[in-house]
Structures are given as C-alpha cells and as structure tokens.
Design a protein around this nucleic acid. Structure first.
Lengths: 316, 316
DNA sequence: TAAAACATGACAACTATTGGCATGATTAAA
DNA sequence: TTTAATCATGCCAATAGTTGTCATGTTTTA
C-alpha cells in the first residue's frame, strides 16, 4: 500500500481513537514502531493537532474531533456549499455557527484566484434575502444539549399568560422562519406543547429519565394532521388565484378555471380558522369565503370589533 | 517534492485546463513524458474522469469541472453542511440541486459507521421545518444564465393585470420565503420592477448589450429604503408586544414598558400600509394604531368592505 | 507518408521508505 | 531507587518505489 493511503488510514484511526501509543498503531497496521513515529511526525507536520506525553502511561493524544478522509470537491460544489450557508445567515443563532465559519474558510482558502472572483461575482447576481432576526436565542445550545441527553427540564417560560415554570421532557427542536421551536411533553398533564426556544428564560436539566415519547419527525408529521377537520370553500378572482398560489398552506388546494378565476375546496383544521381569517381579510373581494360559516362569522366579528376599536372620527 | 503533492498539483492543473497533451505537462512540471503518462493513469485510477484521443491533434481531456485540492473536514463540519442543505429543502427549485446531491453523497460516503448513526440520530432531534412549496420555477436556470450573461430579455409575464410581454434587463435574482425574485430594469420606462421568476412564462435572451445598472446587493439595500416615510405609532398590550416581536419588520421598533405592555414608534413606507393593515387587523385590540390616520382609515375601510362582502344572514 | 499524439514494456539509476538497533529522556509504578 | 513503559532521534543497510531513457506499437490527420 502506498504511503499516502497508509497515512490517511492512520489519520482516520487516530483521530477516531483520540488516545493511543505507538505500539498499538504498529500492531494494528503491521508496521514497525520506528515507522509509526515517523508517520506521526508527518501527520503533525500536515497540521493534525497531536501531542505526546512521555513516560509510563504516556502516549499520543489527538486534540481535534474525528476527521473525515480527504474529499475532492468541484468548484460548483464549493459554490453550492457557500450559498447554502448564505441562506442560513438569517438565523441569528445556530447550533453550528463555528463549523459554518471554519468550513467556509477552508473552502475559500482552497479556491484559486479565478474561482474566488467567480464566487464574488455570482454573489452580485444571486442572493438569499431574509429579514435579519434580532431576537436572540441565548439558550439554544443548552437546549440542544439537554435534548440530546434526553434530560427532563425545568424551564422558566414567557408565555401568553406570563412567566411560569414548567416541567417538561423535550422531543426535539426545529427551526422555522428564523425562529427555533421545541415541542416537549408537559409532565404535569402529559400533553405535548410547543415552546419557542427564545422565550425560554432559564433551563435546569434533571437527571435523564426517559419517558418514551414520539420522536421529532413523527411529531412534525402528526402536528399537521387535522384535529377537527372542516370544509373550506372559497371563490377566487383571477388576482385571488395568484395570491393564494403564494400561500404555502393553500397553494395545493387552488383550482384554476379556464377564465383565470378559480376556487379552493379543501379541508382545514378548525384551529387554523384564525390564521385563515387574516388571509381572507387581506384578500377582500378577491376571495369570497362560502364555507365554513364559522370563518365568515369570524371575519364579520373581527370587522365589527375593529370598527369599535377605531371609531369614525378618531383623532390621536 | 513528494509524489502525492505533485499528483495534486497536476490534478489541479489539468482539471483547470480541461484539454492538454502529455508533453505540455512534462514541460510545465519538468518531468519526463513517460512519467506524465504514469501519473495520468494514477489520476484516472483515483477517479478523475479523463479520456485520451490518439493521433495528431489528440491529447487528454478532463470531463469534470475544476477541482479543489483535497480538504480535510471534521465530523462536526460535515454535520453542519448536512443541516445547511436540509434547510434548503424547501426551495423546490435551486440552481445548485445537482451539486447539493453530490456533496451530500460524498460526505455521507466518507463518514464512518458511527458517524452515520450520529447524523441519523441528530436528525431525530433537530430539523428545519418549512412548508414545501409546490410552485415550480421551470425557467430558473435559464433566468440565472441570462443574468450572468447580462443579457437583455424579452419575457412573457403573468402579472396582476394579465399576461403581457416585457422587455427588461435583469439586475439579479434572489430567493425569499421559498420563492425566487428577479429585479430588472424595464427598458420601456427605465424603471426597476420586481418579477417573480415562477411567473415568467417564457424568456427570450437578446444579444448582451449592457446598460449600466446597479448590482443586486445595492438594489436590495435601496429597495428597503423608505420612499415615502410616514410615522407609525402603535400601543401594544402585553400580548401585542409578544406578537410584534415575532414580526421581522417591526421587532426592532418594539419598545417594552416595565409593566409588560409596550409601543411601536417608527417610520415606515407608505407603500407598506396595506401589509401593516393586515397585521394590525389580526392583532385587533392587542395593538391599537394611533398613527398614521391613513392606516386607521384603511383598517376601517377594509372592515366596512368586508361587512359588505359578507352580509349579515349569509347562507351559502 | 510523415508527424503528432497516446500506450506500454523493459531496465538501470536514482530516491524514498522501512525495520532494526542503539541511545536518551521522561514518567509512574513497584 | 529501580524498573518498565513511553516518546524522541540518529544511523545504516535492506528493500521498495519512482523516474528517465529507449524501444515499439497504435491511431489520427495534414
């Protein structure tokens, strides 16, 4: 086997093992101890952060985390990684911020002059634009750690009804629209609630004592099942069709007529009525709700309330 | 210089040059032609897609795109790239779909068994959730190509007022909220308009004839300057504060009072009034708009319209 | 037909790697 | 204090790998 391959094998072996003696490596790879010393010197020269402790019980220790074998990327692939990272910029807090920086650095360093120019020029043609969030999520990594350890948590939470202390077992954590959410089992009433991680004011992890719950993927799927299905029927003008096609929740249900107008006929959850009323309020005459009556009543009630809040001759 | 380093140098050289003869390489690197043949055989064995044409005017041709020197990643960095890509899944169309797949494949293949498990288990704790868009953007790559070439375009566009043909020069392209947008200079009236790429029905690129315009970054910055500033003053209940802090546009302007309530006092653009009326309609009594009068009138008018659209005893 | 390219084999000269041995230094346990 | 287990380094001969040169083919095109 060529030296290069053997070096990579040893690199992977030691970066995985973290602590070892030269004799171990010699035995594992059937080479002499002398050669092992030489190899480790080479790896050290190549930048592997490794140090040796002398004396009995001594040995080598690798400081970095597990390392992957060298990978060859094409320029296009490097660009893809750059842009994927760019799209993440709008999360103010991310569990991988340090890694994202180091990967970008490694890639950019290895690009040639011309390729760097290409990336820079592409960046003047293409972008991911998102409003930069200002809410910070200081406890993000703590929460993630607790989730991975499957700990039960005592959290102080800033909810609709004020700050309260809750005893929960988290299911997982997900990002949506720039914010982090944590579905968790509320241990008092055995119900799964959804918490916003930025609204968690403090956490206290108890000993891990796992109650078997569903995992995050299952929860995400079930969370969007209809609990109380109800029929939504809406007639759309041409503009209404256009607008509704931009609504992630409804776009699938839009039916176009040949004259450009259309309609929506689908089942939605009763709990989504409030959300939908906001949409159809905005669309006004471009979307005439025919069903359900509840939604129509909601729209009317809200309109009435609004007229009460803002009386005719209002002056500040 | 060691063989490995020389091989990498040659790899980079030839993957950049694409077409070359053995003699060229021999001259460039001061090695014999025989050795070049041997090296190219090695590179071919290592997976570089290269083929040779014999005879006069023959030579070697590399099929793949420019290749970066081998990079060492840590496991954590690989995980970061995976999750960055996961967050992109909600764009149905991306200019880098092929690259994203190949990078994921390369990384996953190079992970050890244990590391694969780690990633899989992390994926059951952490996710990026986004509604999957169903609108397709078939012309995405064509548009990107035209933008890079700085071509002028004749597009068929499905706008509010129907399908029309427009003659434009694109400035760039950006993604937002799962959709792709293209700001472009309308050549008839010299104004910059914003197009949704999925609403472009066909494009026809003219010869490139660049009118100097601003670049995408500049446009993005200027696009959010206030054209017609107007004062927005809103009194917020405790719940209103909570809700407004989740609104990317307003969160910066929210001022909290010591009792948990708060207010917004900021400048907004007159053009955003419609957008804001939808928000404050939803918030109802939790956010009492005091200024501007236009917004209050808009809220009232819309409420009136709605009551007219949905008369009292409406039955489907 | 000649020139320009790739393809491959043989071999000697050269270079790099390896293992074995020796010598030191350092550390912790006996 | 001694001893065993470590790393660290130097030397050298044996071995392994690499290189250049030359030779011989093949394929393609001017």
């Amino acid at each position: 086997m060529s030296k290069a391959k053997r070096l990579i094998d040893i690199l992977l072996f030691v970066s995985d093992k973290k602590k070892f003696t030269a004799q171990e490596i010699a035995d594992t790879f059937n080479i002499s101890v002398r050669t092992v010393h030489r190899y480790l010197l080479d790896l050290s020269d190549m930048g592997l952060p490794i140090y040796a402790e002398q004396g009995r019980n001594g040995g080598y220790t690798v400081l970095s985390n597990a390392i992957l074998p060298p990978i060859l990327f094409t320029e296009e692939e490097a660009v893809a990684i750059f842009f994927a990272f760019q799209s993440l910029h709008y999360y103010r807090d991310l569990p991988f911020n340090a890694e994202i920086k180091s990967v970008s650095q490694k890639l950019y360093d290895s690009l040639q002059k011309e390729a760097k120019k290409k990336i820079d020029s592409l960046q003047s043609y293409i972008a991911f634009w998102n409003p930069k969030r200002t809410v910070t999520t200081p406890l993000l990594t703590d929460v993630l750690e607790a989730i991975i350890n499957q700990s039960q948590l005592q959290i102080q939470y800033d909810s609709k009804s004020g700050i309260s202390t809750k005893h929960v077992q988290p299911i997982g954590m997900y990002a949506h629209d720039g914010l982090w959410y944590m579905p968790a089992l509320h241990l008092q009433n055995k119900k799964i609630l959804l918490f916003r991680v930025d609204r968690i004011l403090s956490i206290l992890a108890n000993d891990k004592s796992k109650e078997t719950t569903i995992n995050l993927q299952q929860w995400l799927e079930s969370a969007f099942e209809l609990q109380q299905p109800i029929r939504l029927y809406v007639e759309l003008s041409r503009e209404g069709v256009r607008q509704c096609l931009s609504e992630p929740n409804l776009e699938k249900a839009v039916v176009r007529h040949s004259d450009g107008t259309g309609h929506i006929d689908t089942m939605i959850d009763k709990g989504e009525l409030t959300f939908n009323s906001s949409l159809f309020y905005r669309l006004g005459q471009h979307a005439i709700v025919k069903e359900p009556q509840e939604l129509i009543q909601l729209l009317r009630k809200h309109a009435h309330d609004l007229l009460a809040i803002y009386p005719k001759q209002s002056n500040s």
